[in-house]
Design a protein around this nucleic acid. Structure first.
Lengths: 230, 230
DNA sequence: TGACACACGACTGGATCCAATTTCTACCCC
DNA sequence: GGGGTAGAAATTGGATCCAGTCGTGTGTCA
């Protein structure tokens, strides 16, 4: 059930030794869709499955809470938060405003190798036909463009916004596909071109437009937020 | 500044877990300046001072880490992060982009009582002459304008940005005051007027301008970031 | 006298045990 | 038969104990 290659570069949350492994496992399980919004997470279940005590699990849940992947109620345990359409809309507006800043901060620090990698990922997106792998590729593309940003609060917040909406992105993509792929590819290519020209103004312009268009398209599909999972 | 004795009233929560009380205590101590950037926080010290075991302290440190008040290194313990001028500058740019959104989301949900309260706080700012109480009043003013925003990721991120820069705001205010008070008051009054008119465009305009001007003024005082504390 | 190595001290990470709170269920009374 | 209450099972929160790791100080040898 694990073994899903959601592993991305830039593992920033370098925390304790084994509690980080539990956090990694749970993170993959949530981002991979095995644990959905509303699902409860019992400490002892995870501890037993992992062969550890409940203590690392508790720490891991705190870490995930900081990343926006779980929510915590005293004496009630942890569960994956369920978001309304309006909440997801506002989160996309936050992305619209924050990610262009992260991109500008990242621009000057991107290496030649990063640019080549970005081009490869975008080419794979264009050649791709599977909706599920589009999810991972798109995520990799965007987070890679921010990998040159070394301002910790900014990168961690961007990551958190992606994490919080991952489930609804998958639901959206599964229900009719991500939309017209040529639009997405054109937007990505324009962002890439601006990055290569080291032009922060154009980079921010095309990136915010890309996110905004996605948000508006998402707003037209309320069924994404009513789907019963599991 | 205030050298050492960590003596704060710790009567915040009769309810909830004990780890939340420890977190409250540490949060106040950091925001109040008793624990400054670079200071190390030893689990056993806090536990002994609080009469509990180290476990709630560990959980509290995780909570504070999520709020951006501490940073954690494996086997090295927790310390209050020390920010560079550029990092604070970027955090202010994040505020410039995020807080107007929070204000727009908040607008429709502000009650008449909130508006009266805001007017009172602003009047107290205008009548105030003490630089230290300005810090608290200004924080109260802005966070109050966002109190109608019920999108959890947004409010928690705004609060985190305020927390992270609190120490440098105090250092800035202490070193020569917050600048020309009439400018600040004019900006606040314009934001308030836009709020009362329920005009999100003007509210965002004047708020982002207020934050942007503060950021640029802060950039002219690099001595804020070189101050040796303790 | 200086540099390297070993040992000791201090601190964090993890496991097990115990207490407190919640929730579900069953039973009793109206 | 329905609702409320008490009790039992399940689950989380906290304390104590033990292990692992990092840093430091001292001692010895070249």
């Amino acid at each position: 059930m694990s073994a899903s290659p959601h592993s991305l570069p830039l593992e920033l949350g370098a925390v304790g030794a084994a509690s980080a492994r539990v956090a990694d496992y749970l993170r993959e399980a949530i981002l991979g869709g095995e644990i959905g919004p509303g699902d409860r997470i019992r400490q002892e279940d995870i501890a037993e499955r992992f062969g550890t005590s409940r203590l690392p699990v508790r720490e891991a849940l705190r870490i995930l809470e900081a990343e926006g992947l779980t929510e915590h109620e005293p004496n009630k345990g942890a569960r994956v938060p369920k978001l309304t359409m309006h909440e997801v809309d506002v989160i996309y507006q936050m992305r619209e405003r924050l990610e262009p800043l992260a991109l500008t901060e990242s621009l000057a620090h991107l290496s030649e190798q990063d640019l080549r990698r970005l081009d490869q990922v975008q080419s794979r997106i264009e050649a791709n036909t599977d909706v599920n792998s589009f999810l991972a590729l798109d995520r990799e593309f965007h987070l890679l463009t921010y990998s040159g940003c070394h301002i910790d609060p900014l990168t961690s917040m961007v990551r958190r916004l992606w994490n919080s909406t991952q489930h609804y992105r998958r639901a959206f993509v599964s229900l009719g596909g991500p939309g017209r792929m040529w639009v997405i590819n054109a937007e990505h290519r324009l962002v890439l071109d601006a990055i290569e020209r080291l032009d922060p103004v154009d980079a921010e312009r095309y990136l915010s437009g890309h996110i905004r268009r996605t948000r508006i398209e998402l707003d037209r599909h309320p069924e994404v937020f009513e789907g019963r999972q599991r």
